[in-house]
């Protein structure tokens, strides 16, 4: 399978990228590592008229210590997030999840920003971002900047609150140094998308992100609230699928996904508690 024809340009700065994206109009798409977009293009499920390749904007590939948070450039590759010492120290959940995305080849090319901006409910990193309470920095036409909380970012199936012409530039992750954490990824083959995944951080309060439990990456709010209200792990986990409409596919029915979510949330909370510094 091969993509439909398209135009291609490769800006050398974020400013230039914004300009090219603006000129390209609605059918223009950003290309980072390409590991979310190119597979869709090969299947002809996406056919952008213009690809703006920002893959080598090294200015967007970094991990920085910003006091109470880590600032991670959107074009930082999964492999680099996985092995970064700052991430390992202050957001070990994120390092671990980055190491669970796809397979090694995917992790050598795919980027954290590309994965989040794609907004795939089956993707691992959005759930981690939700659990960690991350914020996304965005620049728009003319260099306008805004911050979007992870909880406000995912709007619909493969839809985010990124407006046309905007670029996700940075992921800001509050430090969770010493926090308990767990990532439970349930799949049938190691390389597959999660059938259900659960990312959890316990650091006084608890953040839980769910993979593949709806049309968008989700936060397990019912569980978080139950815990905040004093429920036991066991009791809280029973609410993991409350109000959710998980998808049906070859691997799982909605009913089974709901069951898995309850089991995996419980396991995640147990593991996070056991890891709690």
């Amino acid at each position: 399978m091969i993509p439909a024809p398209f135009e291609y340009c490769r800006p050398t700065s974020v400013e230039e990228a914004l300009g090219m994206l603006g000129e390209g109009g609605e059918d223009a798409k950003l290309l980072a590592g390409g590991h979310s977009l190119l597979p869709l293009m090969k299947l002809r499920l996406a056919a952008p008229s213009l690809l703006v390749d920002i893959g080598r904007l090294r200015e967007l590939s970094y991990v920085r210590d910003a006091g109470d948070a880590l600032r991670i450039g959107a074009l930082t590759r999964h492999r680099d997030v996985e092995t970064d010492p700052l991430v390992a120290e202050h957001a070990p959940l994120l390092a671990h999840v980055a190491g669970q995305v796809g397979d090694p080849q995917v992790r050598h090319r795919g980027t954290i920003g590309g994965s989040i901006a794609h907004g795939d409910p089956a993707s691992d990193l959005p759930a981690a971002a939700l659990a960690l309470g991350a914020t996304f920095e965005v620049v728009g036409p003319g260099g306008s900047k805004r911050s979007i909380a992870a909880g406000d970012f995912f709007q619909g199936f493969l839809e985010t609150s990124l407006a046309p012409g905007e670029i996700l530039t940075e992921i800001v992750v509050p430090k969770a140094t010493g926090a308990g954490w767990s990532f439970q990824k349930f799949n049938r083959r190691a390389q597959d998308w999660a059938i259900v995944g659960v990312a959890a951080v316990r650091n006084g309060s608890t953040g839980i992100g769910l993979v593949n439990m709806g049309s968008v990456p989700l936060r397990a709010t019912a569980v978080e609230e139950a815990l905040a209200g004093g429920a036991s792990v066991e009791e809280a986990a029973a609410h993991a699928a409350d109000g959710l409409a998980p998808p049906a596919d070859l691997n799982a029915s909605p009913e089974y996904r709901a069951h898995l979510a309850r089991v995996l949330v419980r396991r995640a909370l147990e593991e996070a508690s056991s890891r709690h510094g």
């Binding site: 049938r188 083959r189 190691a190 390389q191 597959d192 070859l250």
Partner: peptide
């Protein structure tokens, strides 16, 4: 344990790629 050339009621093959047709890897 893994492989199934599954069809829906309309005769569409649901596992037509190696993403959906689960040939196991070394990890399994």
């Amino acid at each position: 344990l893994w492989e199934d050339a599954a069809y829906d009621a309309d005769g569409n093959l649901l596992s037509a790629s190696l993403m959906d047709y689960l040939v196991p890897s070394a990890a399994e």
